[in-house]
Amino acid sequence: MDFAGAYSTDHLKFLWQGLEVTLLVALISIILSFIIGGAIGTARYARIPIISNILAMLVETIRNLPLLLIIFFTYFGLREVGLKMPVTMSVIVAMTAFQSAMLSEIIRSGLNSIEKGQIEAARSSGLNYIQTLRHIVLPQALRRMVPPIVSQFISLLKDTSLAVVVALPELTHNAQIIYGHKDAYVLPMLMILAFTYFVVNYALSLVAGRLEVKKG
């Protein structure tokens, strides 16, 4: 093992560049999947005829596919039909699609968790369906959904490492390049990868824990 060589300034700078890509891809995917997943989850909760059934079928299909397969599809499969995207964009599309399906279920379940009595009371007081959803259902549901949503975001951040298969220059990919030059770098690189992912994800876990306490 060569810790001194593995953790040279150039190597650490290269790893930092990979971490920046990891965080960028994760952040964009989180924002997009929250918007799309929120729209899908709300639409399914509203039970819009036909649309709700189509969305349910789409969500269940994506949820039951491996994320790795979706990444392969967006990067390699779409190229076969003439839709070529840069590797970063293809990974963002794949992760957004997968996480949107996951988040839509969390959001739908959160909305369904609100007691029917509150909804009936709001409607009887003169609020229409949209007003009831906006002022009564959503504020309470969001508080209940925050911890599982944060947990899903943690999973998303870890799943960015799967993009190494399409050579996205993220953290794991850059670490592989470094230890590919010298066997003595393998363990040091694996250790710093584990430490980095742990620190970032543990910080997010603390956020989820604090939100859970506040919710209680």
Rank of each mutant, 00 (worst) to 15 (best):
G38F: 05
V150P: 06
T61F: 04
L23H: 00
M95Y: 03
I119T: 15
H173E: 09
G5Y: 09
S113I: 15
N128I: 02
L65R: 02
G180H: 10
F73Y: 13
D2S: 03
S151V: 11
I30H: 07
T61H: 02
A46L: 13
R108P: 08
S100W: 06
L65D: 12
L83R: 05
F76V: 14
A184T: 15
A194I: 11
K214C: 10
I35M: 10
Y202S: 13
S155I: 13
G5Q: 05
V166Y: 11
M189T: 04
L206Q: 07
L171H: 10
Y7M: 00
G216N: 12
R134E: 10
T88Q: 08
I70W: 05
P139Y: 15
Y45G: 04
G82I: 05
V213N: 09
G18K: 08
F195V: 15
L69T: 10
V199P: 04
V186D: 00
I149M: 15
V164P: 03
Q99N: 15
I107K: 02
P188C: 07
K182W: 02
L19N: 09
V199I: 15
Y197T: 12
I31P: 06
L32I: 07
A4T: 12
L23T: 01
I40C: 02
I62K: 03
V146T: 13
F14T: 09
T172S: 08
I149K: 13
A4N: 05
L15F: 12
F76L: 08
L168Q: 10
L19A: 10
R134M: 05
S161I: 08
L187Y: 13
S161E: 00
T22P: 02
I51C: 04
T61M: 11
L133D: 15
R108H: 05
V199C: 12
S161G: 07
I130W: 03
E20Q: 13
I50S: 04
A56F: 04
A6M: 12
